[in-house]
């Protein structure tokens, strides 16, 4: 990996203000998620129906929802699930997709034909529907939701990994490594992966944002994370019913999504700019 983390790039990254802002925001989000119990002023699960739909004020910064739960505390706790879903589903999707794409690109032949055809097939499904179908088969649950979103992203990663691997396959130094008797795993990990790792990292940060949005969309259809666990997605969904009446219930989790997506996108852009941008776009 030394090739990838050359200090020139790190310096380029640090010079990039957008990237630093993105990094700071993303770290902030992760911290909020980790330290939620210490940051939230109220228990996000305790209901008090007599205080339902109270407007934002000194007692409740972001008001209360229709069960009388504190929206501020729920937004903080929501970071846990939303960031978790975002990061881990992308990890699942990237790992799976990269594996298939790398192997297909490297080995070629019937293996490549079958798997890349499958990728084509999966990519001709609407993303939301694919999520719905995977969820229907896997059943409900946070782990399954993460897995389902990961599966939705995997074909896209596979295609990216595949095309770059194919481009690299014919390069001289790979041929040299092959000639020197290196096994396929050694070549993939030592020579191919470092070369496309940057791109995959960029895509992964961008897709983290996408995954957070997909969770929100699945929640809108009612198939997100089960109650009473708050996620920004299911908070927005609940709040949308009250949008005309009590906008705060959905506006604050909406803003939280906005900040999170901005953060991960800026981070991804920063990494992209710091690396040699020749291969992307």
């Amino acid at each position: 990996m030394s090739r990838f983390w050359k200090s020139r790039r790190i310096r380029a990254f640090i010079r990039n203000r957008t990237a630093i802002v993105g990094l700071v925001l993303a770290v902030f989000m992760v911290c909020v998620a980790i330290f939620a119990p210490f940051l939230a002023p109220y228990d996000p699960f305790v209901q008090n129906v007599h205080k339902a739909l109270a407007p934002p004020g000194r007692e409740h910064f972001f008001g209360t929802d229709d069960f009388g739960r504190d929206v501020f505390s729920r937004v903080i706790y929501g970071a846990r699930i939303s960031v978790l879903v975002g990061v881990s589903s992308v990890a699942v999707g990237t790992a799976l997709g990269a594996m298939v794409g790398l192997a297909a690109g490297y080995f070629g032949g019937w293996f490549e034909t079958i798997f890349m055809r499958l990728v084509d097939v999966l990519m001709s499904f609407p993303a939301l529907l694919m999520g719905l179908m995977f969820l229907a088969i896997l059943g409900p649950g946070l782990d399954k939701l993460i897995f389902a979103i990961g599966l939705v992203l995997a074909p896209q990663v596979a295609r990216l990994a595949h095309s770059t691997t194919v481009a690299l396959r014919e390069m001289d130094y790979i041929a040299a490594a092959k000639a020197s008797g290196a096994g396929p795993f050694r070549i993939l990990f030592r020579h191919v992966l470092p070369n496309i790792g940057g791109e995959i990292l960029v895509m992964a940060t961008l897709w983290t944002a996408t995954a957070i949005r997909v969770e929100a969309n699945l929640s809108f259809i009612g198939l997100g994370v089960s109650p009473p666990t708050p996620t920004w997605g299911n908070m927005i969904r609940e709040g949308v019913r009250w949008l005309v009446v009590t906008p705060w219930v959905s506006v604050f989790p909406g803003l939280a999504i906005l900040v999170a997506v901005l953060a991960f996108n800026m981070l991804g852009d920063g990494i992209r700019d710091a690396l040699d941008p020749r291969l992307y776009c």
Partner: peptide
């Protein structure tokens, strides 16, 4: 939330 007050933990799974 009400059952939780007497120690009954009800796990809910939302499906279509």
């Amino acid at each position: 939330a009400q059952l939780a007050r007497v120690g009954i933990k009800l796990n809910i799974t939302v499906v279509d």
